[in-house]
Amino acid sequence: MRALVAVGACYLDAILTVHHYPDEDEKLRASSISRRRGGNVMNSLEVLQQLFECRSSTNNQPSVPLYAVAVLPARSSVAIEEIKASLGSSVGIQHCIHREDCSEPASSYIIKSQSTGSRTIVNYNELLEMTTEEFIQTADKLPDGPKWFHFEGRIPEVTLQCIQYLRRNYPDHKVSVELEKPGRAGLQELATEADVVFYSKSWAQGNGHQSAEELLQEQCHLTPQASILCCTWGEKGAVGLDKQREIYIHSSASTDPQHPIVDTIGAGDTFIAGMLYAFLSHGDNFNLQRAMDFANRLAGRKVTQEGFGGLGTAVAHYL
């Protein structure tokens, strides 16, 4: 069974809920405020540790080692304990890269509009990004054994070099990558190198595609290494492409009229967690349709609650 190494950013989020998005220079009272740890791969890790803990306790199955690789502030900073607590004891952060001259973590300030359901995000980050050399040192220090590396699609020029290093030196490792931000140059090159690619609706639309199927048809010819491509499309669910079998799979979004949508932040990260869980736990018995249905069910549950707590227990029956 492969260990998972998730590479990306770690944020501490402050989320303000307001009736409507404020106009410039408008004074507005928020109806609520919440604070939690964010970052795409960190959110996915938080969900994954719940899934594997529930699987281990209910089915007596071994867990999967989970490691985070992110740039964090000084080890002595207050934020480190908050980050550790948010992830749980099953996620190892000992391989993260610390900027000892910084005390503040990367931060996001999120404004949620109740009238439209939209969210506006402002980021602040004084931490220098990870370098290729730092990643290489980290990758070489990881415990022996087969691994699955999942990369958030950020700093593409560095991420590409990291993936290429793994290909040259650890050819048995698997690599997945998330393409989310449409304006970020260099993401297509990451998809070209990966075994599994997750595309967002915004990335697809930003590149001129009107549907998930249309995107995957184009990407099929641009991703020679990949075996699985997957694109989420909000309320329309997700579409996956099994390239080896040349089969397109559609999985409907999971909705429950009894539980209205209250928090979409991290829904895509939760979907990816469900897919990674299926890859890691089922191995050669992986079934794309079942994996996508499970991931959609998991993401559908997440949007009916604030945060990620209790997701593993909620879907324990399907693990």
Rank of each mutant, 00 (worst) to 15 (best):
Y199S: 11
L87F: 13
V78I: 07
L241K: 12
G234H: 12
G237V: 02
C96L: 06
I163L: 08
I249A: 04
G307E: 06
N287M: 11
S200M: 08
S252T: 06
R2I: 01
Y124V: 08
P143I: 10
S34W: 04
D293T: 05
R184M: 14
A238E: 12
P171V: 10
V239A: 03
G92S: 15
V64F: 04
T132S: 12
T270L: 08
Y248W: 13
L72M: 08
E218F: 07
K84A: 04
L45G: 01
H259E: 07
A6I: 01
C230F: 04
Y277F: 15
A6C: 02
L127M: 02
P143S: 14
F198Y: 15
S86W: 05
A278R: 06
K201V: 03
R37P: 00
G145W: 13
S115C: 09
E235R: 13
S76P: 00
G268L: 06
P224G: 06
R301G: 00
E214W: 03
S113W: 11
S77A: 15
P65G: 11
C162L: 10
Q137R: 15
H95I: 00
Y165Q: 09
H209Y: 15
G39F: 09
K236L: 11
T223Q: 02
A68E: 07
S176K: 08
A6R: 00
A85N: 14
A6F: 00
H259T: 05
G206N: 14
I261G: 09
S31V: 13
Q258E: 13
V18A: 10
A295W: 06
Q188T: 05
G266A: 07
G117E: 13
H95C: 06
A68L: 13
P257H: 10
T116E: 15
A314T: 03
V41R: 02
E46A: 10
P62Y: 14
Q219R: 11
T17W: 02
R55I: 00
E81N: 15
K243P: 00
R297E: 13
G312T: 05
H221L: 10
F271S: 10
P146M: 14
V196K: 09
A238Y: 11
Q205H: 08
H19C: 02
L160E: 09
A314Y: 09
E189R: 06
T138R: 15
T304D: 01
P182C: 11
G237S: 10
C96A: 05
F52Q: 07
L48I: 05
Y248C: 03
R167E: 12
W203I: 08
S31R: 13
T159R: 00
A14R: 14
E246W: 08
H259P: 00
L187V: 04
S281W: 05
R168C: 10
Q289T: 13
L72E: 03
D23E: 15
M1S: 14
G300P: 08
P156E: 09
E214P: 00
R167H: 12
G266M: 05
S32M: 05
R154L: 11
E180L: 03
Y11R: 01
G92E: 09
Y11M: 02
R301D: 03
R99K: 08
V7T: 01
G92H: 12
G240R: 10
